[in-house]
Design a protein around this nucleic acid. Structure first.
Length: 490
RNA sequence: GCGGGUGUAGUUCAGUGGUAGAACGUCAGCUUCCCAAGCUGGAUACGCGUGUUCGAUUCACGUCACCCGCACCA
């Protein structure tokens, strides 16, 4: 059994070895923001690549996309974020607990997770909180005035201060995919069922951030919107559910640390038909199961909403872009023939596809891979810290050492390094005792160390030392590239 | 945002109202033919600000950040 890993151990390892630093650390840090150092940048890039390879490259039915972070504000009106990504919250004067106004009950009652309510509507309504009960301490009517929380980041476009437009930093990458559904359809000869995948940064003004890079306000998503014919959606939902779960397992996450959690019906967003989280047992607090990825059946909601949005542009100009004054136009009765519909040549029918959305957090996955790979073991009375990364994820694939810094060994090692660095991420090190160099690479998660020794000059062989077993093989120098290819490709 | 805790070298820790120490790591050198060996030498820290004080890393206040718990988490 692996030892209980504490988050603090991971945080300090991350800093010590250059995986993750706190953002703006020389200025005291900036809450919830983190930077990936040299090893972390490689690791995260490998996580992205593994996702892209599995979800896009290896499939005939998925294409990629890379949207801008800034989009037309109407995107967020149509998606519902502009209205719903805000809450009215009040604070109990007695116990200082924050509660959503729409969660307050007249009497003691279980608080259910509910869909967010339009903040403008909510604000317009008179709020009589005098009879409401604080769910935390039970005090009645002890609430402060309702406060609005805005979960989307705002920014200004336009250098001329008098002629600026307020834009939002996207709170999810998905909407960029929906907004490009037509473009992809018209330019790539894809046919339903097919998917569009994207990896990119998103931003949410979370009320509270949490646990290192687990919940941050700036984060990276890897999202797939998979479009399918209504009626086949359950099938595809299950397909992606399995696909995505296996992706984590195949990259080395221990099975006992991974599980599904189905959302309760009352927990679902109103447009979602089903949703399941892939959860990982993180070492925060008591060892909490936390979401890595959500797989949702979003039905035809988003495409239909954007068809409504497209019909609302006159109002956008009339109301001078004030989203709070704009009401989305009603749907065309023939909405299923609208601009974001798909014409099925075989069935000769037009419909709005259903969407299955696996949405993964890249930073969360990266953290999970780090935590899961972390291990300590006793070797000859010494503790060895190592990261047992899957070779595909390891920031450095192979380290190359001369056994000692003399007798021509460094020259041979250098030559080997120069030879393979173009193909694999490598590291050359000739300093100090070889055992120390091995251990250093263990802590960086490097799966292979190649050592040039005295015998190399005699028979042209080198030793390859494997990270997990610490075993060594003698391999011919000219076979090294093939050997690494066999171990690392696939 | 509330309550609790923490902040000293890269990391983990010690310590003091009179200007800071260790271990590991790191760097340079010596040694070294396979798992953090040894020897020599070097660099590096009191989160930030204000106040009290002759003097503050130490006390107070503020602030920033992190951790734990609560609440929040389309």
């Amino acid at each position: 059994m692996a030892k209980l890993t504490r988050l603090d151990d991971i945080v300090s390892l991350c800093k010590r070895r250059g995986f993750i630093f706190q953002s703006s650390e020389i200025y005291g840090g900036l809450a919830s923001c983190y930077d990936y150092g040299p090893l972390g940048a490689e690791l995260k890039r490998n996580v992205r690549s593994a996702w892209w390879k599995n979800v896009v490259q290896m499939r005939d039915d998925v294409v990629g996309l890379d949207c801008s972070i800034l989009m037309h504000p109407m995107v967020w009106k149509a998606s519902g974020h502009a209205d719903k990504f805000a809450d009215l919250v009040t604070v109990c004067k007695k116990c200082n607990t924050r509660t959503r106004v729409d969660h307050l009950q007249d009497g003691p009652a279980a608080v259910e997770h509910t869909e967010h309510i339009n903040i403008e509507t909510e604000k317009a309504q008179p709020h009589d909180l005098t009879k409401k009960v604080c769910p935390a301490c039970g005090a009645v009517g002890q609430f402060g005035p309702p406060m609005a929380f805005k979960l989307m980041f705002e920014t200004q476009m336009g250098a001329n201060a008098d002629d600026q437009m307020t834009l939002y930093l996207r709170p999810e990458t998905a909407q960029g995919i929906f907004a490009n559904f037509r473009n992809v359809l018209d330019s790539t000869r894809v046919k339903v069922p097919f998917g569009i995948a994207q990896i990119g940064k998103s931003f949410r003004n979370e009320v509270t951030t949490k646990a290192f890079i687990f919940r941050t306000r700036e984060f990276e998503q890897a999202e797939l919107e998979f479009f399918c014919k209504p009626g086949t959606d359950d099938e595809w939902y299950n397909h992606w559910k399995q696909q995505r779960f296996n992706w984590y397992l195949n990259l080395g996450i221990k099975k006992e640390n991974l599980r599904f959690r189905d959302h309760d019906p009352d927990e679902l967003a109103h447009y979602a038909k089903a949703c399941v989280d892939v959860e990982y047992k993180f070492p925060f607090g008591q060892g909490d199961w936390q979401e890595l990825e959500g797989i949702a059946n979003r039905t035809d909601y988003d495409l239909r909403q954007h068809q409504r949005g497209m019909r609302t542009m006159t109002e956008w100009f009339e109301k001078k872009g004030d989203l709070t004054k704009i009401t989305l136009r009603e749907e065309d009765p023939d909405y299923h023939k609208g601009p974001l519909s798909f014409f099925d040549e075989e069935a000769k029918e037009r419909y709005i596809p259903y969407v299955i959305e696996p949405s993964a957090g890249v930073d969360r996955s990266t953290l999970a891979f780090l935590v899961d790979a972390y291990d300590e073991e006793e070797v000859n009375g010494e503790t060895r810290n190592l990261l047992r990364f899957h070779p595909h994820l390891a920031p450095i694939k192979a380290a190359i050492f001369p056994l000692v810094k003399k007798d021509g060994m460094p020259e041979i090692a250098r030559k080997l390094y120069d030879d393979i660095k173009g193909k694999f991420a490598c590291f050359y090190d000739e300093k100090g005792a070889v055992g120390r160099r091995y251990r250093r690479q263990d802590e960086a998660g490097t799966p292979f160390c190649i050592t040039i020794d005295g015998q190399t000059k005699e028979d042209n062989t080198v030793t390859v030392r494997e990270r997990d077993s610490m075993k060594q093989d003698r391999i011919s120098l000219d076979q090294i590239k093939n050997y690494l290819r066999e171990q690392l490709d696939s």
